[in-house]
Amino acid sequence: MVEGSAVVNPQRGMKVTKRARMSVLLALVMVVALSLGAPSVPAQGPVYSVWVVRNSVFKDVPAGAFMPDRAFVPGSTSPMNNQVFFQLPVNVGVIKGGKDVILYDTGWKQQDYLKMTNSVNWAPLPDLLSRLGIQAGDVTKIVIGHGHWDHAGQLSDFPNAVLYVQKAELEGIQWALTYPNPRIAAVNTSQGGCARTPACGYPPLTLQEIYGKVLGGKAVVVDGTMEIAPGVIIHPAHRAHTAGSQLLEVPTTIGKLVFGSDAYSSWEGIRDWMIANPQQTDTVQQFLAYEKCYKITGGYQNCVAAHEPLSYSDKYPLTKNFWTGPNDSRLAEVALAPGEKTRKP
């Protein structure tokens, strides 16, 4: 057709050719744009049921402390910088399939922290699980995305569960604690506080909980990648939040999910490529962890974030199918395996 036009009127035909090319280009742009939010391809092989539950909320975390690119700017009308605080949920993944009930992270247990951290809506994880028809003794495996207190805090409540922790995480803590420069090794960094030094996020109690699992023969120290159940794969994301951060790939009926703990603190951060919750974080490694989710799931929709402020709303679609639990906690049904009944009341 284009050739024909060139024959009839070469000059005009050339313009038409360019227009035709432009239209094809436009169509391609449209296809790419439309595919950006498309759900990923359903997984092959075994699929798992998945819920996400909110263990508590950290209130009034300064926006810039959570996401530096979104620091509050007085007078700004930009949605990027007009928020003073974020309300951060502490999300825990519940994965059920075959003979396994797997937790990804265990939130935090120490109720005495409630005043300390200005937290609200804390609910014991066993209580939340019971709303899903799961007893604490049913949990077979626990994968901690990292060992910080608010992600590895209730291990002893699950006596039958085998803990999966990265070797690099344990080594990283020991490295930090024994580093010769006391400013880097510090566990008390300021008057009454401890935040950014490498060993800060690991109170003695949390390490005792991890040690307890090792003592009881219920721990697997993972060195890199490991498939812990058919299709359920641990991926290392070292330094994406802490020395031994790890992701968890889970096949479901809505495609593969990737849980990221604090390597994926913010789902918006993954979507918009902004770092979040920088603690012992190498921001390049955090971006590479984001990329891992894009590669595994085909986009950002199925990346499961630990502290996404939009959780349990339509704005974070993965968690939009939610209901309220004890102490105004939240439970979201993310995906059901064939034959699995909904737990949503």
Binding site: F58, L88, L114, K115, G192, G193, C194, G201
Partner: peptide, 12 residues
């Protein structure tokens, strides 16, 4: 710590 050092451990 909860009694006398509020904020000893921040959200991590």
């Amino acid at each position: 710590g909860n009694m006398i050092w509020p904020g000893e451990y921040l959200p991590n």
